[in-house]
Structure formats: C-alpha cells, structure tokens
Amino acid sequence: MEKIRLYSIATLCLAIVLSSCGNKQEQQAAKMPPATFPVAQVSHKTVTGFQEYPTNIEGIVNSDVRAKVSGYIQKVLVDEGQKVRKGQVLFKLETQSLSQDAGAAKARINVAKVEVDKLIPLVEKGIISSVQLETAKANLAQAQANYSSIAANIGYATVKSPVDGYVGAIKFREGSLVSANDETPLTTVSDIKQVYAFFSLNEADYLNFLQNTKGNNLEEKIANFPEVSLILANGTMYSEKGKIETSTGQINQNTGTVSFRAVFNNPNQLLTNGNSGKIQVPTIYENATVIPQEATYEQQGNIMVFKLSKNNTVSSSIIKVKANVNNLYVVESGLKEGDKIVVTGVGKLRNDMPITPQEVAFDSVLKPIEKLFKN
C-alpha cells in the first residue's frame, strides 16, 4: 500500500512538472513573431517582350539568268558566289550555225539591193511599172529584217548579267545544251546589299499586332512598328536591325497566317539567298503592371497572388495575365499600383495568415531578368 501511495505522488509531481514546461513553451511560442516574408509594392513599368517566327532570307533583287537562244554552252566565265556587274558576260554559247545563217542572210540582202538598184532607172524611164520596184524594195526590207533577227540571236549567245550582284548556283556547265524554253535558269544573280526576311503571323498574333500598334490603317501601323531582330541559324543574333516593310494584310485560307516582309542591311554579305533563321518581333507593354512569376501560384486553373493587408495578414487574389514574358507576368487585372504582394515563398502561405513583412524594392525583384527587357 505504501508503495502504491509513493508511486501516485511521484506521478502527480511529474504531471505538474510537464504541465509547467508545456505552459512555458506555449507562452514562448505565443511571444514569437510571425514568419518573415519579402513583400514589394506593385508599380508600373514599360517592358518589351519578344516572339519568334521562322523566316526565309532572299536578296532584294533575284534575277534569273536564262538563254534567249538554243545552243551549247561554249564558256562559263564566272564562278558561284562571284560578285558581278550589270552587263558583265557570264556565259558564251556556240554561234557557228548562227554565223552561217547570218552570212546567208547578208548575201540575200545584197541580192535584193542589186535588184532594187537595177529597177530604179527602169521605172524612172517608164520602161516598167513602179509596182515591180516596190516589190523589190519589200524583198530588200524582208532580207534586212531577217539578217537583224539572226544578228540579235548571235548577240543573245553572249549571256550577260542583268543586275549588279552575286552569282548563285550554276546549273549548267560547258558543253550543256540550253534553250529559251528551259525551266531551270543558267544561274541567278542576287543583289544582297540588303535582304528580305519573309515570315508569317497566325491570326491571333496578327490581331494583336493590329490592336496594339499605333496607326489608323495597316500602312501607318507598319510604319510605326519598332525594329525587328534576326536570329541566325547558328543561334547568334544578327548585328543589323530590320524594319517591317509590307504585309499582305490577308489571311491565307490554307495556312491561317498573314505574310510579312522585313528588310535588313547586309553590309558584309553575311546573308544570302536561302538563309534561314528566326525573326524576333517585339511587343511593347507600356506602363504595364508586371510581377515575377515566382510571386504567383496556380489554383484550379487560376493564377493567384498573396496581397498584404493593413494588419499584416495575407489574402489570396486571382489575377488575369495578359502576357507571359520569360520569367514575368504582364497583369491585365487583379492588381493595381500600390498593392503589396509577397514576392517569394508563396507556397508556405495560406489565407489570412499573419506574417512579418520585409519590404524590398520592386526593381530588385525584377533585377535577375532585367536584361531581357527594354525600359
């Protein structure tokens, strides 16, 4: 009995001690401040995001060089990639048969001229009628026209460059038989002091272009549109900026896209026909509400942020996003200038949770991705 009583007293004492320790821990926990989270005041900024579209490059002038007469190529006087001047000889065709035809045609001219010279005095003396003379003159004119045609063909056998530029692929070599009816040109001479970059926008992007660019019509909007950039096939950025010049302004029913053409200076002839790459088209969001994606979370398909209330508790709020630009959201609605939001650690928060706010400059939150934007 004595042992049972002693055990009960010991148990009671232990319970009192444990209760005392628990109360102290609860009191200490009650005295601890809420967890600290960085918050920033939302402000407006002008930022530029970029969208990329595949593009094909062509010289501003691409002139097919074709034979105007049939014949065998006797000489190829240029090489691929060579710079040539307008009027420079590129190919020479064999002209032996044409030269023989020209000789025969010239002989017919002489015969016809002799006939005319013979008839003139006879007509003047009234020995023969003038009709015979007019017929002889017509025969002379026909012989001269025939000779001029053959001489022109001899000239066409010397194939010249129609423009200043650079020689493309040479499709035929010496000994090849060519004619004016060939589908494939002898070569193409391209003026690449400037180049065209062709690309297409889908219907949604085209509507955004029309709605977000200043101007009363398509021509004015194109004139007001900022410069575009070109990403080369190896992933590097081309040094020259380009300007959009034209657009079809019509949606292709087969592809659902609208075609655009930009022009780039090409002082070092780095670009040429057939190059590919990506056009980087800027979209400017002026005086926009911008927040880091890290400050948001998703819930049932909605994008949410935690706003800081006056009593230092946080409340969740749905935002509507206009654009996703790299690591930032451009906010259309749900936030206004002056609102304070938690910028990191939102996964640890819940509605109406008290926090200790640590205010940070909003620009410092955007600093890691600052280089991706133009202010």
Rank of each mutant, 00 (worst) to 15 (best):
I128P: 05
Q132P: 09
Q132W: 12
Q132K: 14
E134R: 13
E134I: 14
T135E: 15
T135I: 14
T135G: 14
A136Y: 01
K137F: 01
K137E: 11
K137L: 06
L140Y: 01
A141I: 12
A141T: 10
Q142Y: 04
A143V: 04
A143F: 00
A143H: 02
A145S: 11
Y147T: 13
Y147D: 14
S148L: 10
I150D: 12
A151S: 12
A152D: 12
A152V: 12
G155M: 09
A157F: 03
T158C: 06
V159F: 05
S161H: 04
S161E: 07
S161F: 04
V163W: 02
G165Q: 01
G165D: 00
V167W: 00
G168T: 02
G168P: 00
A169W: 01
I170W: 01
K171D: 12
G175Y: 02
S176V: 10
S179E: 11
A180C: 09
A180Y: 09
E183V: 15
T184V: 15
P185V: 05
L186W: 03
T187R: 00
T188K: 02
S190V: 05
Q194W: 05
V195E: 02
Y196A: 13
A197C: 10
A197F: 04
F198M: 08
F198S: 12
F199D: 02
F199T: 04
F199A: 02
E203I: 05
E203G: 10
D205S: 10
Y206G: 03
Y206H: 02
N208G: 14
F209T: 05
T213Q: 08
K214L: 13
N216G: 14
N217S: 10
L218P: 12
K221L: 11
I222T: 05
I222V: 11
A223E: 12
N224T: 08
F225Y: 13
P226F: 02
S229D: 11
L230V: 05
L230W: 00
I231P: 03
G235F: 03
T236H: 08
M237R: 13
Y238D: 07
S239G: 08
K241L: 04
G242L: 01
G249H: 00
G249K: 01
Q250A: 14
Q250Y: 04
I251K: 07
N252S: 07
N254M: 12
N254Y: 08
N254P: 01
T255N: 06
G256P: 02
G256M: 05
T257K: 06
S259V: 13
R261V: 15
V263S: 07
V263H: 05
F264G: 07
N266D: 09
P267C: 11
N268T: 15
Q269D: 14
Q269V: 15
L270I: 15
